[in-house]
């Protein structure tokens, strides 16, 4: 089985998977663009709640708070800002004030551009308040304290916590809960999702966060990409099943121990899948030879 120890098979394995996924995403974007009715995507409760939350804050005349997490400028924060653009557009139409608090200077700059762009496109440039998009602090708990202060002082009626959140997630969610704000939240960090579930009204779990912009806009590119993503996940599941099948089959395989020259079942690190992902040229050789 030494051929599995080349080190390039695992790279090929991963490359094939990623290429297949990218192809699926791009093909489905094309398919979605060509389709008249658009591709089907299922209902996501948390996203239906966005309009309800904004409506409620409009009734109460209180601001809508948005926080795109504490991560840097990356795919996650850009996705959060995309959703916030939708929230802002709805809020702008009802002349509802917004607060967008950032913990990263780069995210803050991009957020400012996106939000002012939303007001301009809606023809409501006069309603845009430059101070509504704020940089608070890039230190985690200073940011937590700052945002909690804004929630309590301004009595925000609706809060959206979408993006990369860590230990500050529960501080935000409970503070907002204490003033009765309606909350929609999502963290790409699985460790924080339970905290949001305990304290928020609606939570987007895992990749529902990435489905949000497609669901809200129904734009063919986004819907197609979402369908492609789902096929990608099926491919990953297929790979996992393949691994399970190989490992299960090899449970019954026996080998001759290089040290004792006796027959024994394969150890977990002698199975094909392990060897492919952990190449080691010395594997299988007797101990003395290896030590040389």
């Amino acid at each position: 089985m030494q051929w599995a120890d080349t080190g390039w098979i695992n790279i090929l394995f991963v490359l094939v998977l990623i290429t297949a996924m990218l192809t699926m995403i791009l093909t489905n974007i094309k398919r979605s663009k060509a389709s008249r009715e658009g591709l089907y995507i299922r209902r996501i409760a948390g996203l239906n709640a966005i309009d309800e939350a904004i409506g409620r804050s409009t009734e109460m005349g209180k601001p809508v708070l948005m926080v795109p997490g504490i991560g840097g400028l990356n795919a996650i924060s850009v996705q959060a800002l995309n959703i916030f653009a939708y929230v802002t557009r709805t809020a702008a139409r009802f002349a509802n004030p917004i607060r967008l608090c950032c913990a990263d200077a780069a995210v803050y700059t991009v957020a400012q551009e996106i939000i002012s762009d939303v007001y301009n496109k809606e023809g409501l440039a006069d309603r845009y308040d430059q101070d509504s998009v704020r940089f608070v602090s890039d230190r985690q708990f200073a940011f937590a304290a700052g945002v909690s202060g804004i929630i309590l002082r301004e009595q925000t009626a609706a809060t959206f916590f979408l993006g990369e959140f860590f230990a500050e997630s529960l501080i935000f969610a409970e503070t907002a809960n204490s003033i009765g704000a309606i909350q929609v939240a999502s963290s790409t960090e699985t460790t924080q999702t339970p905290f949001f579930i305990a304290a928020c009204d609606y939570v987007l779990i895992g990749d529902e966060f990435y489905a949000a912009s497609a669901y809200l806009s129904r734009e063919p590119v986004l819907v197609g990409s979402l369908v492609g993503q789902d096929i990608g996940k099926i491919l990953i599941a297929g790979y996992v099943l393949l691994g399970v099948a190989f490992n299960s089959a090899q449970q019954f395989e026996r080998t001759t121990d290089p040290d004792t020259q006796t027959s024994r079942p394969l150890k977990s690190d002698e199975r094909l899948m392990y060897m492919i992902f952990n190449p080691d040229p010395n594997r299988g050789k007797p101990k003395e030879e290896e030590e040389k």
Partner: peptide, 28 residues
């Protein structure tokens, strides 16, 4: 499983950003 989903989502988002397929996202 959740991490796989998040990873694939980030990959799709990355490719859309790289190829500028997004047109301002949901802001239209």
């Amino acid at each position: 499983a959740i991490n796989f989903g998040v990873g694939v989502g980030a990959l799709a988002m990355g490719i859309r950003l790289w190829l500028s397929l997004d047109r301002g996202g949901v802001s239209g």
